[in-house]
Amino acid sequence: MDWFGLDFEKQLLEVLRLHLPYLRSIAANILSSPADVDDAVQAALISAWEKRTTFRGESNLTGWVARIVISRSYDLLRQKARTERRIAGYEPPDASAGTADEEMLRQLDEIVAGLPEIYRDAIHIGVYSNRSIAEAAADLGCSANVLYQRIHKAKELIKTEFARYENH
């Protein structure tokens, strides 16, 4: 029994050694500053260690940690947004600011953040991360075929949400 989590710590250190750029790139798709990216990855590693008894090997450890990085990155994003609102007083973003492309990217970020977790993770790991489909499927603990289906479904949900933006 790994009473003090020492074996699991070694496994996480190996993931860190081999895949730190990958984990950071996932966080960088959500957070803008390098300091926040590193904070999110550190928080994810610590969460992974604390939740080590819940890892059942349904995906590889790197993929499991990658999904926790996504969650922690969004947590940090929400925390920073709350802090900024308290400091400045909340002002709705000026929809006319920035180019049309930048506005669409901003909307895409918001929509992806609000997707159900399996589709959100499919986008971050299966599309944004530039991993091969086989690697991404292994990270998510599913077959390549299932991952394709999740990505397809995620895109349908994203298109539906974009249409809602037009109607508001």
Binding site: R24, S25, A28, N29, L105, L108, V127, K159
Partner: peptide, 16 residues
């Protein structure tokens, strides 16, 4: 949508 997703994927290199 694919073009937007590709832009995000192309930018997914963390600074530093």
């Amino acid at each position: 949508l694919d073009a937007l997703l590709q832009r995000k994927a192309a930018g997914s290199v963390a600074p530093g």
